[in-house]
Structure formats: C-alpha cells, structure tokens
C-alpha cells in the first residue's frame, strides 16, 4: 500500500445520499479474480449510456473532473454490499480520498486498507463542500486536518488505520506479529 500524507486536489461532487456499492460498481463487473483495472467500470451505470458512451453531464465525465483525486459525496456513502471492488475501482480511477458526513462501516474499512482516505466531516462543512464542486482542498493526514479555502477543520480517523496509512504498511504484518497470542488463545479454548 502506498503511503498517504498530503492530498491536494479540486473536488468532484456526487451530492446524492446513500450512494451504495452497487452504484459504485455494479455486480455484473464482479466476476473478476484480480483487483486491477476496475476504474473503467466505476459508476458504470451513471457514467455511460446504454450504448456505452460517456454521459457528458455526469460529474466524473466533465472536463474539470480530470485529475481530481478527492470525491465529495452525500451522506452514508458506500452503503450496501461488502465488495472491496468499490474502493478498488475508486483508487484505480485515481481517487485518493472520499469526504462525506457519514461513510458506511464496511466500505470505510475496505477503503482504509487500500490507501483511500475516508474523511468524515461535520454537517456544515459537508454542506459547504456539496455546494462548492471544484473547490481546492487539501487533506493533511499527519495533522488530521482538512483545509478548505480560508479555513481548516479537523476530522477523526481511527488511530491505527491512520498509522498504517501514513507509513504505507498493511495490517497483515501487525496481525501476524500477534500469532503467539493467537496460539495461546486457541490453546486456552481447546480450539
């Protein structure tokens, strides 16, 4: 996993609340056995028309969205299925962070494991971001701060996940380091 520190970008905004993982990547694209290359199917049914042509009005297809790495989305982003294909597709497309007022549990966990920063902000910051697509923002993970034009707000992130993101380490190594404890636990339970 790539280390995350400072992310600086203009935002792309998808204001709808409850954007579920079936919208992020529809089930028919889940028949893969690898995690690469899913970016082209990101938001497939919103991004492309029936003939497979990009819909020019969709936020991700607009010229100003090119190169943006921060997605601002409506409340309860990433609800629904546990498919990690959702953060894989977002990362493959180029996103490094998602900002919302509420991010669904499994999606948030999955994002943290793939270097996609889930940033949960208060309602008024969220409302401002939704109303200002294309705003220049920077996310400073080392200081837990989201900088908007003219002000900064703090966001909360689980301490260990933050450590892993800052250092580009994954949790597997940490967990495997606990194997002696795990073996003791199993022995005590007769497992």
């Amino acid at each position: 996993m790539q280390a995350v520190s400072l992310i600086r970008s203009r935002t792309v905004v998808l204001p709808a609340p409850n954007i579920d993982t079936d919208q992020i990547i529809p089930a028919r694209f889940l028949t893969v056995t690898t995690r690469e290359g899913l970016g082209k199917q990101l938001f497939a049914d919103w991004r492309y028309d029936a003939a497979g042509q990009p819909r020019p009005e969709f936020a991700l297809n607009r010229p100003e969205a090119a190169g943006c790495t921060v997605l601002v989305a409506g409340r309860n982003f990433g609800c629904g299925s546990s498919r990690e294909h959702a953060p894989w597709a977002l990362v493959d497309h180029g996103f490094r962070a998602v900002i919302s007022s509420e991010i669904a549990d499994i999606f948030r966990n999955n994002s943290l494991k793939n270097g996609l920063l889930p940033v949960v902000v208060d309602d008024s910051t969220h409302a401002w971001l939704l109303e200002h697509p294309g705003a220049e923002v920077s996310i400073d993970l080392a200081n837990n701060s989201l900088n908007l034009p003219g002000r900064a707000v703090n966001f909360r992130i689980e301490a260990f996940a933050r450590y892993c993101l800052l250092n580009g380490v994954d949790e597997m190594g940490f967990l495997r380091g606990k194997l002696p404890d795990i073996e003791r636990y199993e022995a005590a339970r007769g497992w």
Binding site: S82, E84, I106, N109, K113, N114
Partner: peptide, 13 residues
C-alpha cells in the same frame, strides 16, 4: 461482513 483484504487476514491468522 468483511472485505477481501480482511478475508486474507482471516485466512492467514
């Protein structure tokens, strides 16, 4: 429910 990375964690540990 868990994601695929966590499926790997459970496999290994």
């Amino acid at each position: 429910g868990i994601g695929s990375t966590e499926v790997g964690h459970v496999f290994a540990t």
